[in-house]
Simulated assay, not measured.
Amino acid sequence: MKKLFFKSLVKINNVLLPSLYKKDPMKLSTFQKAILGYRYWALTNSLK
């Protein structure tokens, strides 16, 4: 159940949130870093 929830959350994130691919993490704003961290957290939980 938990894995299914996070897999669907990752799919929703891919559609709604901006892609930060090929951007330097050191040059991101605080809000963009928060989005990147949230997407990483959801992805790692979906893979467990």
Rank of each mutant, 00 (worst) to 15 (best):
N13C: 12
Y40H: 14
K23P: 01
T44C: 10
F6S: 00
L28G: 00
M26T: 10
F31L: 12
K48D: 11
L17E: 07
S8G: 13
Y21F: 04
S29Q: 09
L17Q: 02
L17G: 00
L47I: 10
K27S: 07
R39K: 09
W41E: 07
K48W: 11
G37P: 01
L16E: 11
N45G: 04
S29W: 11
V10R: 14
F6Q: 04
A34G: 04
K2N: 10
F6L: 09
S46Y: 06
T30N: 08
F31P: 04
M1K: 12
K7W: 10
M26C: 05
F5A: 09
F5L: 13
P18V: 13
G37T: 10
S46D: 12
K23Q: 14
S46T: 08
V15G: 01
S19I: 03
S29Y: 07
Y21N: 15
S19E: 03
S8V: 15
L47A: 15
T30V: 08
F6E: 00
S29I: 14
A34F: 02
P25F: 07
L20Q: 01
K48S: 12
K27M: 13
L47D: 05
I12V: 14
L28I: 03
I35H: 02
L4V: 06
L17H: 07
R39S: 10
K23W: 10
P18S: 08
M1V: 10
L20N: 02
L17F: 03
L36H: 03
A34S: 07
F31D: 12
F31T: 13
F6A: 03
K3Y: 08
I35F: 04
S29H: 15
L47K: 12
G37R: 07
L9G: 05
L43D: 08
N13H: 08
F6D: 02
L28V: 05
S19G: 05
I35A: 01
L43P: 00
T30K: 15
M26N: 14
S8C: 06
K3S: 13
L43I: 03
I12L: 12
L9A: 15
F5I: 13
M1A: 14
M26K: 05
Q32L: 02
S19N: 07
S29N: 11
K7G: 10
S19V: 01
L47G: 07
K33G: 07
K2S: 14
R39I: 02
L28N: 01
L28M: 09
V15N: 05
W41K: 06
L20K: 00
Y21L: 09
I35E: 01
L9I: 06
D24L: 01
S19M: 02
I35N: 00
F6C: 09
K2C: 08
R39T: 13
K11E: 14
S46R: 03
A34D: 06
K3D: 06
L28F: 03
K7H: 09
S19T: 02
K23F: 10
L4I: 15
A42C: 12
S8Q: 11
L36P: 00
L9V: 15
N45M: 11
W41P: 01
K22T: 03
L28W: 03
T44H: 12
K33I: 04
M1H: 07
F6P: 00
N13E: 13
V15L: 04
W41T: 12
N13V: 13
Y21K: 13
L36G: 00
K2T: 11
F6Y: 08
T44Y: 12
L4C: 07
D24Y: 00
Y40A: 08
L9Q: 09
S29C: 15
N14L: 02
P18T: 07
K33T: 05
K22S: 05
